[in-house]
Design a binder for these strands. Structure first.
Lengths: 151, 151
DNA sequence: TATTTTAGTTGTATAATACAACTTGTTTGC
DNA sequence: GCAAACAAGTTGTATTATACAACTAAAATA
């Protein structure tokens, strides 16, 4: 086996990723100042804006989350009238989740805010650099997702 | 103002970062399978391994966390005998936090495990790509940190 | 039809975090 | 030199995100 302690880039990636992850809990910095939608809700609405309706199960599969987690997140969005649910016509167990107009407006607004934050965080980066970074992040995420899929 | 919706790289970065952040709560994938040390404890021990002792306040400043947060994290590490605290000699308010030998062994072991995870996640990446990615992550993190510093 | 499978909810637990209230020391200012 | 102000930490409380287990209800299957 290769000596992992002799790969400074790898070490730095490990360190920087864990530091970045820590920011996840740090709402004010990365989630936008005045938003009233959190990470989970944002991601769900974002997906529902593209494809709606989706069942709770489908959302959970898409994000590789436990159904119970998504169930609660949907409940929170529903309480705020950002999504609606209807019982599946052909299957009474299924809850079809629809994004509401208010939900669409919310997600558009929040996305705009978030893009402004990122634009300012990445001020000074060339388009080339941003494209490369986006690609690297995507590669890492897809790999993490594929690992997760194998339990 | 530039039209942010016309910058696909920026949009992708925004999306991939939020997706990656979500993994933060997903311990099994990124924190290593059999570890018994979580993100917060790992980062603290890692720092203490380099410079020890540090006061609770100093740790909080370093990580830009609330002192109460660090106080609890230290308590957890102390319960597991990975750190020790001594009252400051010149200032009875200060708690000097020392990493123990067990703490050092733990962090070395966990770091090795984590590097193996990252090595496998980044299998197929060239050294050049890893170096560029590390640099990009570091730039983003430093920028996030500097924003945070301005409250 | 009886059994099994599937969709979703609810109970419980954990990790990480912030803010506010509090205690205990240390400085400072008169 | 003492009272007031300040600083370091801890503890109480709340929030977000999550998983796993136990449960209910509906559908599929045998």
């Amino acid at each position: 086996m290769k000596d992992l302690n002799r790969d400074p880039a790898l070490e730095q990636i490990e360190h920087e990723v864990v530091m970045l992850l820590r920011r996840a809990d740090f709402k004010k910095t990365l989630d936008g100042a005045e938003n009233n939608l959190f990470r989970s809700g944002y991601l769900i609405l974002n997906l529902l804006q593209q494809t709606s309706p989706l069942a709770v199960r489908e959302l959970a599969d898409h994000f590789q989350l436990d159904v119970s987690t998504v169930s609660r997140q949907i409940k929170a969005l529903e309480n705020r009238h950002l999504v609606e649910r209807r019982i599946g016509e052909h299957d009474g167990r299924v809850n079809q989740i629809f994004i509401t107009d208010a939900g669409k407006r919310s997600v558009v607004k929040l996305k705009k805010e978030r893009l402004m934050v990122y634009d300012s965080l990445l001020a000074g980066w060339s388009e080339e650099e941003k494209a490369v970074f986006a690609d690297h992040l995507a590669r890492l995420n897809r790999k993490i997702e594929s690992r997760h899929r194998l339990h």
